[in-house]
Amino acid sequence: MFMTFALITLLGALGMLLQKNIIVAGLFMVATFFGVAGLFLLLANPVAAALQIIVYSGAIMVLVLFVIMMLNSHEEEKAETSRPVQRWVSVALVLALAFGAVKLVLSSAGVKALDLRGAAMPQAMTLQKVGTTLFADHLLGFEVAGLLLLAAMIGAVALTKRNL
């Protein structure tokens, strides 16, 4: 099960990276987000899986695809100046970062110990537990998050409307 969802996630992300057509890349992103939701389910966290599907696959990607279709620029534009050096440096940087970090995780004794200890205590995340923690310990943060969403909404309207 884990391999299935991991492959959906990573192949979707890779397809997004390599795809020329932006709409198809957006659809690959939807697949990736569903794969991540599956990983959250396997982590005994159905709340996060549901939120992932509702917010990312549902809201954010619909918004992105909507903007892609509205802007009518479905293909990547021709480069003004080709920058081969920068591109190869970026590729080398990303590969070095990925290999180094993966090697570090696989050889870390602390992660291995946490893995063994954690496997023995399978506790599902319930909505009740999340709600209690959220509203008992983080009430102010919750309200600020609501304010931030309102500010972002007003900002987005102000930026896109031609004449207010």
């Binding site: 990312y56 809201a59 954690g118």
Partner: peptide
């Protein structure tokens, strides 16, 4: 999950999602 279902992480996850939605808009 591997620390025994810590609910604090879910709170952070909710905040990350809220900020990501703002960033998207």
């Amino acid at each position: 999950r591997f620390r025994g279902g810590d609910a604090q992480a879910m709170v952070f996850y909710l905040f990350i999602i809220a900020v990501a939605a703002c960033e998207a808009a």
